[in-house]
Amino acid sequence: MASRKGRAMDERVEKTPDATLHQRILADIEGHILSGEWPPGHRIPFEHELTRQYGCSRMTVSKALGDLVRRGLIERRRRSGSFVAHPQVQSAVLQVHDIRQEVEALGLTYAWRTESRAARGARSDDRKRLDLPARARVVAITGCHYAGRQPFCHEDRLINLTAVPDAENQAFDDNVGPGTWLLQQVPWNAAENRIRAVAAEPDVAALLGIAPGTACLVIERRTWISDLHVTQVRLTYPGDRHELVAAFTPSQS
Rank of each mutant, 00 (worst) to 15 (best):
C153K: 11
E155Q: 15
Q170D: 06
A171F: 08
A167E: 10
D173C: 14
D156K: 01
T180Q: 02
A147Q: 03
R149Y: 05
V164I: 09
F172G: 10
N175L: 10
E155V: 15
A163H: 01
W181Y: 11
P178M: 09
G148P: 02
P151D: 15
L158M: 13
G148A: 03
A171E: 06
V176I: 14
T162L: 08
G148R: 05
C153N: 11
C153T: 10
N175F: 07
L158K: 06
Q150E: 05
A163D: 06
P178Q: 11
C153H: 04
F152H: 12
C153M: 12
P151A: 15
A167D: 12
A167H: 08
D174T: 12
G148T: 01
G179A: 06
V164E: 02
G177S: 13
Q170L: 07
D166W: 00
A147Y: 03
A171L: 08
G179P: 00
R149W: 04
Q150P: 00
A171I: 00
G148I: 03
P165S: 13
E168N: 01
E168Y: 00
N169R: 05
V176D: 11
G148F: 06
E168H: 00
Q170M: 07
H154V: 14
V164F: 02
A147W: 02
D166G: 01
T180H: 03
L158S: 12
F172T: 07
G179I: 02
T180E: 03
R157W: 02
G179Q: 02
F172M: 11
T180S: 01
A147F: 04
F152A: 11
V176M: 11
D156E: 08
V176Q: 14
N169G: 05
A147V: 05
F152Q: 01
N175I: 04
E168T: 03
T180M: 00
D174V: 01
F172E: 06
P165H: 13
V176E: 13
Q170P: 04
N175C: 10
F152D: 02
G177Q: 10
F172A: 10
W181I: 08
Y146D: 09
E168A: 11
N160T: 04
N160P: 00
A163W: 03
G177D: 12
R157D: 05
R157S: 09
N169T: 05
N169M: 03
R149L: 12
D173A: 15
N169S: 06
P151K: 15
N160W: 02
H154S: 14
I159V: 15
E155M: 15
N160D: 11
L161Y: 13
E155C: 15
P151M: 15
T180F: 00
E168M: 03
L161D: 12
V164S: 02
T162N: 10
Y146R: 10
